[in-house]
Amino acid sequence: MKKVFRSAFTALCALGVASAPLAAHAKQMHELRFGVDATYPPFESLSPSGAFQGFDIDLGKAICAELATKCVFVSQSFDGIIPALEARKFDAILSSMTVTPERAKQIAFSTEMYNEPTALIVRKGSGLKPTAESLKGKTVGVEAGTIQESYAKTYWEPMGVKVVSYPGQDQVYADLLSGRLDASLQDSVEADYGFLKTSRGADFQFGGDVTYDPKDVLGSYIAIGVRKDDPELLKKIDWAIAELHKKGIYKKIEAKYFTFDVYGAPPANSMN
């Protein structure tokens, strides 16, 4: 028993040190940790083997390559991603986050990564449109913490639309498929590539882009978020993004995922 106890104690101490290293290292960036909500294909998702993959992930890796640092991706649900950044669980947010005035009060944003409008997905033939009148009495799913959640809660919920928030975008789709939701609101490219173009999205279609936004809930473009007390990192990331464009790496990665210019003009949904 004595031995067991002693070895157990040593194991505990060893594990305590191993799992929570009070890492003392010289002041130099040796890794860049990105916070990611990996439920948002084709931008960020997990492969069956559990590896991070997607457009954002490839861009992140390219940025790390430019900065000659190690890249680490940390899983984090979207609704807690800004506090987690503030709590220094990672150094930057790389998760299709749109710049909004509200968020810019909390954190700093890099230059543009790409741009996409917000769109509604509905069941084929339902004829629902992204307006409060059309959706009255219906149930709309959104991911918690997104601009789409703010949008639906600002403009639609007071008008009698039932808005349900989920911890991850994949759960929104799961309930859209199962029929609990009548529609879901998210970024249009994500909706197109991550859902409609997959086998699961066969019965669904775009209900249209959201255009009405007098209170500017939807913000502007998508960027990397960094803590305000870390301007050095922001400078480095901005420089790396510029380099990616200059060297043509951005175009190369873009071509791997999209057939249109995801940086400039957002794709029109008129084709649907």
């Binding site: 609704d79 807690g80 800004i82 506090p83 503030e86 709590a87 909390q106 918690a144 913490g145 349900v164 928030s165 989920y166 911890p167």
Partner: peptide, 21 residues
């Protein structure tokens, strides 16, 4: 976790809106 607005859900909403866990 099943989208029912119980006490913890409200706390979670308050937290993600105010960034104050």
């Amino acid at each position: 976790t099943a989208t029912v607005p119980d006490l913890l859900k409200v706390a979670n909403d308050a937290y993600s809106a105010t960034y104050d866990p």
